[in-house]
């Protein structure tokens, strides 16, 4: 019974539950989604037990529904994340985060001579390998490997 009560505290009427966040990426996800700027209640679960992942993070965000490009921001660091859209205490929709074909305004180009680092403009990258997470700048055409990706 106690457990159920605890759950209810965290239960959402309307909002988004983001589950299966790798624990070590949790606070990056928080910052990428701009959660610290929200005025609505947010529950952050850190280092929770997970059968699949060992340890995981979870975010319960009241009164907030994310746009696709906001969600795309986290696909680079937490590709296996699941989003539950809660409406009236029920899961209204489940969303899987997927790496999009194109990333706009999310990743910095590592080439200092790239136009995107010298003009007030959004960066644009094509995801040329979704499995290995290889990106190609659509301006200077330089490729970026997963380990070299720098977020804006």
């Amino acid at each position: 019974m106690i457990n159920k009560k605890e759950l209810q505290i965290a239960a959402l009427q309307n909002g988004t539950v983001i589950d299966h966040i790798p624990s070590d990426q949790l606070f990056k996800v928080v910052s990428l989604l701009g959660i610290e700027k929200l005025r609505t209640p947010v529950t952050i679960g850190y280092n929770l037990d997970s059968k699949k992942m060992g340890r995981k993070g979870i975010l319960k965000i009241a009164g907030k529904f994310f746009e696709q490009d906001e969600i795309n921001r986290i696909s680079l660091i937490a590709p296996a994340v699941k989003l539950n859209i809660i409406k009236d205490y029920e899961v209204a929709e489940k969303k899987l985060v997927q790496l999009p074909d194109e990333l706009i305004g999310i990743v910095k180009c590592n080439n200092p001579k790239c136009i995107s680092n010298n003009e007030p403009m959004k960066t644009r990258f094509k995801v040329i390998d979704k499995e290995k997470v290889t990106l190609k700048c659509e301006y200077c055409e330089m490729k970026t490997k997963k380990e070299d990706i720098v977020l804006l």
Binding site: K113, I115, S116, N118, E119, E138, Y139, C140
Partner: peptide
Amino acid sequence: HYLEGAARYASEITDVPVINAGDGANQ
């Protein structure tokens, strides 16, 4: 242009056709 990707960017912001005559070390 001396910056790479300059012609691609230019082609996105104008309705006039753009020909790249060299953008840095790129093309």
